[in-house]
Nucleic acid binder design. Structure first.
Lengths: 133, 133
DNA sequence: TCTTGACCTTCCAGTCACTGGAACCCCTAT
DNA sequence: ATAGGGGTTCCAGTGACTGGAAGGTCAAGA
């Protein structure tokens, strides 16, 4: 299987797959013409990576998770710790974004949005700070 | 006022302020020894920038907002359009993160997190995709 | 057989918004 | 004189790709 088929199968851009090889996440073989060949194992790894990335895990987390995924004698607590930490980060980001949204949506609502210069948004940016509860 | 005072006043790191000068967002004067001097106007601009950045606006949005902020004949609709677009992006990001969080928190809950290798998280990453409603 | 077009390869540069660090200058107090 | 705590510039690195150039490979059609 060539790279573009692997890309189609996994939903990852070919460029990204090459990059993943570069940084040692996958190791496709090569055939005589130098093209990458993706077997079932590599395809599995790529799928795993695509899903883990979609869950927002960093590349380094993915590297660790992939190693655990392949290690039949892993402890599930190792995986859980990584996932929990990441979950906490996601929660924190959500909280940040909600604070931004709340502040900003108030400002947007207050703004007439016409051709006059009076603008509560600019005033608001000048004066308001983002509240984090 | 020297850069470290400006940093304290605005809450921005000195490095960041230098960077903002580099990319033309602020233009402090210099005194004879080459040190940057921040007057009231520049300090205002920095404060505005810090707040706009805290609201998640990109640097380029900040540049535009700053120009509008300084332009007494602006139309508030120009500001509102930028803010609305940004607000939509924030909403989208929140939705993405919530989808991640929901998927991941289910997986974390399902995982015993002990020293056995059986791990619903890894299985879940293998099998699940993140649902976006 | 030649050509066309769709593949594939490598490598380099750019993205965004900083951040760290080196090497050096300036000012004040001891 | 020296020590320290400012300040300056410039260069490189971050994360996770992404775009693009320059060129090799392959299968199908004229």
């Amino acid at each position: 299987m060539n790279i573009s088929d692997a890309a189609t199968q996994t939903g990852l851009p070919a460029k990204t797959i090459r990059y993943y090889e570069d940084i040692g996440l996958v190791t496709p073989t090569r055939n005589t013409n130098g093209y990458r060949v993706f077997g079932e194992t590599e395809l599995h790894k790529l799928t795993f990576l695509a899903r883990a990335r979609a869950l927002g895990f960093s590349i380094e987390d993915c590297r660790t998770l992939l190693a655990l995924y392949e290690d039949q004698s892993r402890a599930s607590s190792d995986v859980k710790r990584i996932a929990r930490t990441h979950l906490d980060e996601i929660e924190a980001k959500i909280a940040d974004l909600i604070a931004m949204r709340d502040t900003l949506s108030h400002l947007v609502q207050a703004c007439a949005g016409d051709d006059r210069p009076d603008c509560p948004i600019l005033k608001g940016i000048e004066a308001t700070s983002v509240r984090k509860d």
